[in-house]
Design a protein around this nucleic acid. Structure first.
Lengths: 334, 334
DNA sequence: TTGAAAGCGTTACCAT
DNA sequence: ATGGTAACGCTTTCAA
């Protein structure tokens, strides 16, 4: 068995209170006694039991993070941000993946509470009304991160999707493209996707000679982009640039074009949204809206820690800057 | 404050022992009393405090996972496996990323012990002798997962790298290639990389008309593959197939070839090792040795849980099957 | 400066 | 079947 505070106290010939004071540096202890305790701690290789500590102090230094799936690189990136900042404040991460199961999400929310986490970050794209109710009793502050929906009930950290979409569309228009298509996700009725479409529409509407061309995919995976690309190419709309509402869709488009020997960006320009890690690795490299996933995670946990320390936090969503990341999949029309 | 077992006991008019029996279903309780307790639990929305539970039972249901960086997709994949299987046995994951800092690795090893984790999985590629000593006092079983080194001190789960490399080389030879190059990592003096080279050498040596062509990269990132590809192309060795010891290198090679307008697989075949997620997304898709990362994680935690349950575990490394994953980056020579 | 003792929320043993 | 209570390992009053 590992040594306990009692073992140290006994061996050092002092009370456990004194040992506690020494290891926490919480109250003055005579330097003589202090040294003796330190020596014994060393000798017995004593490590305080955090569980016991938590029981009395109520501080678990644990932040629960519920994610859909770490295999999505943007999720991993957010978790990196969460962890790295968390560690700066001595917080550790308790990880739960739902793999898209909303019941699991609710279950983990409860679980994390029983595990006494001090805060919860939810990275989810499941629209789950039930969830909100179930989560109610959570005394731990919650931040909800998500690429897809806004939820007023929770604080969130995100970019301005409307602006980003507007800017990207303008970027393509500025390149000289006349037929700029937008590829959206059909099932996605979220405010967020709606913001993106509005951004695209606004940009298009500001140019007399342009008109909206919108294609809808079934879902937002690479395969969906691939499928819709076929539709787009065969539509006869002479599209010279496609702006996809997710990088995943854009990659599907890129792959379809590769497989069908259509050159990017020579014959058609493609851009995405997100800047997931693969976007800069692919050839051609993908022009896209850069969402700062790492920072989003970092800011999210920073906020929770602030809240835990009773520092001031405001109740509006945190909006982070985005960037139009120009790369090789788009080109100027001559 | 959240309701405690005392609150429930008082409100239900029973002792806390009885409440404990009901919620744990550990001893018979008359159905009448049982129901009363259940009702009160519901009413007060009582959730047992896992921290207090852990303190007495010594079971934290926590597995510590130390990783280098979640952004590496193979790491994320392993963690998925760990988590999914862990959850089946009610275990949760305490995550620590080192970002390549070996001091952090040692620090987290200690930290996890104070947090009372029941087992530790180390996904690391840092060769760290010091680490081993420091880790000694860990009473929690440790499994060491890693794509780069073997370490006898810990149990590990991996594939047979020698066989895999041998088979991949033979696959390329079988395709009719005469000048099959191997791209290795110079700094990598590990047993593991050495196994891979041996596999390649053995395959080459079994063919009279073939001879070894080995290129060394500085490190094992995409950029390194890119650099060495330049060297390889300009070497005048007429290489028609390159087998890279890591997918990352292979991707670098692919990108170099794309940027220099050399067609894959028409002019040169490229294969990798690992089958990281991006390998099947890229165009051309990458032929590679499939390492079952998810399964590696799953088997690792399964083993730990077995050990915790005092089930039988053997002390030799666990070897999982690999697969030669044929894709679009390699082709038959006519 | 130090120690004794209460208490954190449970489980588990011993009575009854 | 039920209740009382020690114990888990620690922090934190309260006294001395």
């Amino acid at each position: 068995m590992a040594a306990t505070i009692k073992d140290v106290a006994k061996k050092a010939g002092v009370s456990i209170s004194t040992v506690s004071r020494v290891i926490n540096d919480s109250k003055p202890v005579s330097s003589e006694v202090k040294q003796r305790v330190i020596d014994v701690v060393e000798e017995l290789n004593y490590k305080p039991n955090e569980i016991a500590r938590t029981l009395v102090t109520k501080k678990s230094y644990l932040i629960g993070v519920i994610v859909t799936d770490l295999a999505d690189s943007y999720v991993a990136e957010m978790v990196r941000g969460i962890e790295e900042i968390g560690k700066m404040y001595n917080y550790d991460i308790l990880l739960c993946s739902t793999f898209g199961d909303m019941e699991a999400e609710v279950k983990y929310l409860k679980l994390l509470n029983t595990k006494q986490v001090e805060g919860i970050i939810l990275i989810s794209d499941i629209l789950n009304e039930e969830l909100h109710e179930q989560a109610e009793p959570s005394r731990a502050p919650i931040v909800y991160l998500n690429r897809f929906y806004y939820r007023q009930e929770y604080h969130t950290v995100r970019i301005n999707n409307f602006e980003a979409s507007y800017e990207m569309t303008n970027y393509l228009i500025g390149l000289g493209h006349k037929n700029v298509a937008y590829m959206s996700n059909k099932g996605d009725k979220s405010f967020l996707e709606s913001d993106k479409i509005q951004g695209y529409r606004k940009a298009i509407s500001e140019h007399e000679d342009l008109s909206e061309i919108i294609f809808y995919s079934k879902d937002r995976d690479i395969e969906d982009g691939y499928e819709v690309a076929d539709e787009l190419v065969k539509s006869g709309k002479e599209v010279t640039a496609v702006f996809c509402s997710y990088d995943e869709l854009a990659i599907g488009v890129l792959n379809y074009l590769y497989d069908n020997d259509i050159k990017v960006p020579d014959e058609i320009s493609v851009s995405g949204f997100g800047d997931i890690s693969i976007a800069s690795i692919l050839r051609p490299t993908l022009t896209t809206v850069h969402e700062p996933f790492y920072d989003i995670g970092a800011v999210a946990i920073r906020r929770i820690i602030k809240e835990l320390r009773d520092e001031e936090v405001d109740n509006t969503d945190t909006i982070l800057p985005f960037k139009i990341q120009e790369r090789g999949s788009t080109r100027k029309i001559d």
